[in-house]
Design a binder for these strands. Structure first.
Length: 489
DNA sequence: TGAAATGTTGGGGCG
DNA sequence: ACGCCCCAACATTTC
């Protein structure tokens, strides 16, 4: 190798699409390397959980945004499409006389297996190879019970991490980054074919701004406006009571350490009890994300298999028509349909409503949580294997710290409790907008005169309920208790 | 990060 | 004035 080559490092971006508080980048920059920023598109290496449609839309714009930031600081993001990431990296290393490769860790099994191979192979070639934690506050293997086992219940997990020292502070690069100009052509973003062919995502930009700036904007807005009332507002789907940072965190456009410390700082300056409780509740939600990664790391099979063995042979219903009705938001239960329509239109669904629609799929329709997980995977801009798996197994009652099988959400009561005036339902189901609040969550009970005055003919303008909740609940309880009795034998 | 069924209590109507 | 019944309102248990 030539002398100059010893100062060149390749920064491999993947799920950490930011320049702020990027440990791999900071490390290389501190040492004084010239940096070649690379993104390799090889979705087949992610197996069956390669990014879904909504995630690909986000990824397209997020990469665009990263490329722009790098360009405005004098560099160029090298985007490559490849059948083999290892092969691609080796070629780039050769062409650019690279001596070190740095990246930030990912925790999904397909990444871990592939990255280990890459690390082994590049190390064998004599390169300096290092991976870093950019994605989590606590590495999954750093948190364990008194018996040195992984946690399966959130509260003790939370107690444990609460006893730890504060996670490292976030930091931006100390000195100006020396970008290395690529000698290889970058492929055009459109070649990655990340955008949907049909105009499905056309209104996503009205609701989200992918990229590091958009992430920063969301955090600033949350800290300034919504954080103070988070505790009560977060459960009201008609309100903008949540941070909506999930897709930004998933793609690593903002550092979770940055989020954590800014909320902590606000907490330390706040005396008012209500606000303090809100901020603490938000930090706890951030810890749920950590818990999800902890679980997926230690129980990687749970993305496809129930964590609890008793559910291994649970007789889920095969009902393509009902699954379709659920996906398309025509179950006849307004709060459920509103959620699924919000999802389809915006690539997002309010968390309270995620729980309601999940309970409906798994308990009322008794369709497998995996079907729900797959649909969310394809349609959510924040689809994340750790959080999605935890969420669906929680709803299905088959996972860690899961809702007990007998906990069945009543979609009408949930609607009345969390969407009292029906604002959320009316926003996403305009055909019901003239229905009085009293009936908005149970149009099937509305007197015929009220329905006709509101311009609603059930079965025509809006569907009849596809199942009777009371009957469905009883059937679910019967099926689950049967499973329980088998499980004992 | 439920809801329904069942149990208990206490005020008020009424003979 | 007293006992009885009804039934909210709330608490507890069960699914």
């Amino acid at each position: 190798m030539t002398k100059s080559s010893s100062r060149r490092a390749l920064i491999w971006f993947r799920g950490d699409l930011r320049l702020d508080d990027n440990p791999a980048l900071n490390f290389a920059n501190d040492i004084g390397y010239e940096l070649l920023p690379v993104y390799v598109h090889a979705p087949h290496e992610e197996g069956e959980w390669a990014p879904g449609g909504a995630s690909r839309w986000w990824l397209h714009h997020s990469l665009d945004s990263l490329a722009t930031s790098i360009e405005s600081s004098g560099g160029k993001l090298l985007v490559r499409k490849s059948e083999s990431t290892l092969h691609e990296l080796r070629e780039l290393i050769e062409v650019h006389q690279i001596s070190a490769v740095f990246w930030n860790r990912r925790y999904e099994l397909s990444f871990r297996e592939r990255d280990e191979e890459i690390k082994k192979s590049l190390t064998a070639l004599g390169l300096e190879v290092k991976s870093f934690n950019s994605h989590l506050l606590w590495e999954p293997w750093e948190v364990s019970t008194g018996e040195s086992k992984p946690y399966q219940v959130f509260t003790p997990f939370w107690n444990k991490v609460s006893s730890f020292d504060a996670p490292p502070l976030a930091r931006s690069p100390d000195k100006k980054v020396k970008w290395l100009a690529p000698l290889t052509a970058s492929c055009d973003m459109t070649e990655l074919k990340l955008l949907p062919e049909l105009p499905w995502a056309r209104s996503f930009p009205d609701h989200f701004r992918p990229g590091e700036e958009g992430a920063r904007e969301s955090l600033d807005k949350f800290v300034a406006v919504a954080a103070a009332s988070y505790q009560s507002a977060r459960d009201i789907p008609a309100q903008a009571g949540t941070s909506r940072l999930s897709p930004h965190l998933h793609f690593g456009e903002i550092s979770v350490r940055r989020v954590w410390h800014e909320v902590q700082e606000l907490l330390s300056k706040t005396r008012e009890t209500k606000v303090r409780e809100s901020l603490k509740t938000y930090l706890k939600e951030i810890a749920w994300r950590e818990f999800a990664y902890h679980l997926l790391f230690h129980f990687p099979q749970t993305s496809n298999q129930p964590l609890r063995d008793a559910f291994r042979n649970f007789p889920w219903e095969e009902s393509p028509e009902q699954l379709r009705a659920w996906q398309q938001g025509r179950t006849g239960y307004p709060i459920v349909d509103a959620g699924l329509r919000e999802l389809w239109t915006t690539g997002y669904m309010h968390n309270r409503v995620r729980m309601i629609v999940a309970s409906f799929l798994v308990k009322d329709l008794r369709i497998s949580w995996l079907e729900g997980a797959k649909w969310f995977w394809d349609t959510l801009v924040d689809a994340d294997l750790a959080s999605n798996t935890l969420g669906w197994q929680w709803a299905g009652g088959c996972g860690a710290d899961a809702a007990p099988y007998f906990r069945v959400f009543n979609p009408t009561l949930q609607g009345e409790k969390f969407d009292t005036d029906g604002d959320y339902v009316k926003r996403w189901i305009p055909e019901l907008k003239n229905l009085p609040d009293k009936w908005i969550h149970k149009p099937w009970d509305a007197p015929p005169l009220v329905l006709s005055a509101a311009g609603v003919q059930l079965g025509k303008d809006y569907p009849h309920p596809i199942v009777d909740h009371k009957q469905a609940r009883d059937a679910a309880l019967a099926a689950f208790s049967k499973m329980k009795s088998y499980a004992k034998i």
